[in-house]
Design a protein around this nucleic acid. Sequence first.
DNA 1: TTAGTTCGTGGCAAAGTGCAACTAATATTT
DNA 2: AAATATTAGTTGCACTTTGCCACGAACTAA
Lengths: 219, 219
Amino acid sequence: MDQKIIVTVDVVLLTLVGERLEVLLSRREREPFAEQWALPGGYVHAVEDADSLAAARRVLREKASLTSPYLEQLYTFSGATRDPRGWSASIAYYALVSADTLRPASPAPFELWPVDELPRLCFDHARIVDGALERLRGKSAYSSLPCYLLPPAFTLTELQQTYEHVLGQKLDKSAFRRKLADFDFLEVVKDAQRTGSHRPAQLYRIREEKNLMLFDRTI
Amino acid sequence: MDQKIIVTVDVVLLTLVGERLEVLLSRREREPFAEQWALPGGYVHAVEDADSLAAARRVLREKASLTSPYLEQLYTFSGATRDPRGWSASIAYYALVSADTLRPASPAPFELWPVDELPRLCFDHARIVDGALERLRGKSAYSSLPCYLLPPAFTLTELQQTYEHVLGQKLDKSAFRRKLADFDFLEVVKDAQRTGSHRPAQLYRIREEKNLMLFDRTI
DNA sequence: TTAGTTCGTGGCAAAGTGCAACTAATATTT
DNA sequence: AAATATTAGTTGCACTTTGCCACGAACTAA
């Protein structure tokens, strides 16, 4: 080994609050940059973490009490100058959760910030957030990724609006539903409807055997 | 820092030889696994490498005398058990080059192996190769990535065949050319034709201002 | 009952795609 | 010199997919 290298994981946890994507930030407890806003993260613990995914899960568990959101490796940001302590590599992950997942812990050591009104972030964390947004938006056009921003059961209109907010464009209702039917990764939740102020809407969920679906064309 | 962590870069260099994708492998010079086949790679040098991309470039320069191929970060493979020396993280990159780029250095410390007839590889390098192939194949369906498996100037038939070999399926000639025209990232090389045993073919190159193009639909 | 709103589906014109035939340009053969 | 073979590049057309809009269905509220 050439010299000691700092290895951390950082997690970009995204959720949809109303029409806006928000990201979970926490105040750093230690130097450098103590008290400033940063992504939840920390050193990889070689004794405790089997791999970097396990480290990311641990971070989410410790900082946001989350157990199993959608979690995917994003990119590794590295270099000599991104951390004042020395040459560092941050293995970045991004996580998607429904907004209500975060409600319970209210007096929490974290806050949700809209992605287009972020405070100044430590290190290169602003770039990491940008990378996560680019990945989310790019991948959402041809995958079922936005489902993970919703609770387990949702209506087709809710799903369409989620796609619209993530992609930043309106979609056609009938074309959207035709494609959902073609791709065939949802199933109706029997006898479950979203009952509101008007005609009730059928609830759907991701079919159990399907995980993230990649489509052969755009949604 | 919790404990010392090994940080390396490994590069999956892919090229198209005839109809088959091949990957560059080299024999390891040191323990562990000395003399066995592995991806070109090595420790990140904190003093020498500005970041992991620079480290990957250095590896390619040292092991394959390559200066500027298409080079993109793939994924970071990490964990306590993938390297017998301890907890390690390999920041993996993949590179694409045209076959003729590798011809010059003939008595070289590396060999090209067809991706579906690989020898036993060290560490988890077989998984890393799989990841690179998955990325290449996935991304090729909606991007100009396969261009980088060709020399700077090429005919449209050569480009179509490259797509076909990477994607593993035949494409329609007229639809393929219509889409190339729509996406508009190629330009004719004036007065340059591939002259063979029959009708000559116009040579094209990637338009200078365009880098990797992502299409809004499949090629 | 009636009006208002959202859910869900169907029709249709326009755009995109797959298939095959056609013309063009060259080398090779006769 | 003419005919043949082969690859390059284009065109026409049927078929599929998409975008747009409207309609009926189901519920709440007045």
